[in-house]
């Protein structure tokens, strides 16, 4: 519940405050957001499994975000930024879908 409230508060805050994303972070923010969404889905699934651990969630949240951003950064440095971003997005997308599928099965058994 806190997570949902936090999400809503964050979005509202973002719309109201209209924060400027620092130019340095601009390429990494979208990937980081997708990684965080993936972690969120994973956390929800774990909690439904009864295996939710807040510490694991927090560390994996931060790590996923950092690794995703780092991969994009690395790709930019290697000259394959666009491709690597796509790769990261695809992998994270698959993970989000599989987590969502697991949640659906847990809740509806079909």
């Amino acid at each position: 519940m806190i997570a949902i409230i936090g999400l809503i508060v964050g979005v509202v805050l973002g719309i109201v405050v209209q924060p400027d994303v620092p130019v340095v972070l601009q390429p990494y923010l979208p990937i980081a957001v997708v990684a965080a969404l993936d972690t969120l889905a994973g956390g929800l699934r774990a909690s439904l499994d009864g295996a939710f651990d807040a510490h694991v969630f927090i560390t994996s949240f931060l790590f996923n975000v950092l690794i995703a951003a780092f991969l994009v950064f690395l790709g930019d440095q290697l000259g394959v930024g666009a491709q690597l971003s796509t790769a990261v997005i695809v992998v994270l997308g698959i993970r989000i879908f599989s987590n969502a599928a697991a949640i659906r099965r847990l809740l509806f058994r079909s």
Binding site: I2, V12, L13, G14, L29, P30, A54, I58
Partner: peptide
């Protein structure tokens, strides 16, 4: 899971979610 729990970890999770929402809105 949906019930609010006033623990430190829940608070941190909420904070992270605030950040995520902020990032989404900014993006």
């Amino acid at each position: 899971t949906l019930r609010p729990q006033a623990t430190w970890s829940q608070l941190i999770v909420g904070l992270l979610c605030v950040l995520l929402g902020l990032a989404i809105a900014a993006q």
